[in-house]
Design a protein around this nucleic acid. Structure first.
Lengths: 250, 250
DNA sequence: TAGTGGTCTAGACCACGCC
DNA sequence: GCGTGGTCTAGACCACTAC
């Protein structure tokens, strides 16, 4: 009907992990166990665990079981690079200038581009960010899409420099659990030229971010355009320690 | 049995697409059709298609079918890499073509660009990576710089498709502790045009990686140029959860 | 050896797009 | 209506890990 069971199950498990029912380092019940507990087939459990694994919440090892991971403690070199706090700090240090706020319905093209459901309603906030106290040109142009029920963030836009997801966290019972991020090189499109004070056809970094709450819900999507000369993305990846008991062979 | 059937099937389909049996814009056979053709179950076909879809080679639409995408015309992004496992798989699935190997001494400009000491000596390996069995253009142009004392990796370049840092880890007492990574949008420079078969001035993603060993030594630097239509960078960022007991227990 | 996750099968029903 | 992909089930065997 509405939501697939494996998604629902992923949300419940993700909430249970966030709620410390399964703390970092502990083991999740086995797949057959989860299947019987939730009254679903093992395939459904596996589909749910696929989601959690992809989000970096758990690690699965054949013959051993499924472990809840600490963020930053990922097998090999983790997909988790940096922290949300770092992203938020970036927002705190810059000033937002809102250019338009508007309710939109996602057409096929936008839905594909953002990875959201076609026909779904979102509040779109179009803004630029600048370094305060300078006459420098803006660092980026960002379209922020939030669920309609969170639309009251628009009251706060004017007075606060916080990231939108930060404001949402404070006003609603929402905690950001993970962010999916995609980076791509593009050329500055004509429509962005005047807002960014950039040259059309210059190099720019496009960053698409999808914000997931602890209950697994996608509640915010941002689509940012950074002219290359004003922004580079830096990150550090550290080798993860194994969570298991066995020592590292040599 | 080494390789799972769904992986093998993914490779065969991917090769068939590359070999123009299913050209861009055309439809793949239906899932049931593929299942009976290859003598596997539909679930196995779906697992294979999941891989192709995730790589951005095909697009699936319920009720409509599976379409082969044109590179550069993807609904979201092109090739994406999320985890190191994928990076390794990426290396395994692509062919390295070495164009030159040469000892260089870093001048001021290079030292600045790579973050290494001016006047230091490095072995530079210039190579492209392509999807094997196709006449597609290369995915990236990479300059790999390694310390002179690790120069014996050059013997392995021809026979192995592994990442250079992987080969170094195996041959020497070096373990990669962390990687500093920097992403930047640039335009394809004239010097890269012929090797990449790309248009000068087109958008490209430049990824600079610095590899540090456990003793803190910088032993490898890579400088990659990915034309935007052939690559996007994907990652997941996780909220730093509260640490219950001691922080990094051993 | 017992239990785990990884793979695979052969069915089934559904929502959706197209004719 | 019909075929498509999306979801789901109830089995099965295997490779691997822990004990």
């Amino acid at each position: 009907m509405s939501e697939p069971r494996y998604q629902l199950l992923a949300r419940e498990l993700s909430a249970a992990i966030a709620g410390d029912r399964y703390p970092a380092g502990s083991m999740l019940p086995s797949e057959v166990d989860l299947a019987s507990r939730f009254g679903v087939s093992r395939a459904t459990v596996r589909a749910a665990l696929d989601i959690l694994e992809h989000r970096g919440l758990v690690q699965r090892r054949r013959g051993a079981g499924t472990t809840v991971l600490k963020p930053g403690d990922h097998p090999g070199f983790g997909q988790t690079i940096g922290t949300i706090e770092e992203l938020i700090q970036y927002a705190r240090d810059t000033r937002r200038i809102v250019h338009s706020v508007k309710t939109i319905i996602a057409d096929i093209e936008l839905a594909d581009r953002l990875g959201i459901a076609p026909g779904s309603r979102w509040l779109r906030i179009r803004a630029t960010r600048s370094v305060p106290g300078t006459r420098e040109r803006p660092i980026c142009l960002t379209d922020t899409y939030v669920l309609p029920e969170l639309a009251d963030v628009r009251q706060r836009l004017a007075n606060e420099t916080l990231a939108v997801c930060d404001m949402i966290e404070r006003d609603h019972e929402i905690v950001t659990e993970s962010i999916d991020q995609q980076l791509q090189a593009v050329l500055v499109p004509r429509e962005a030229v005047s807002l960014l004070e950039a040259e059309a056809g210059g190099p720019a970094l496009r960053i698409l971010r999808r914000y997931y709450a602890t209950d697994g819900r996608l509640f915010e999507v941002t689509d940012s355009l950074h002219p290359a000369d004003r922004f580079a993305y830096r990150m550090s990846v550290t080798r993860a320690r194994r969570l298991d008991h066995g020592e590292t062979d040599s």
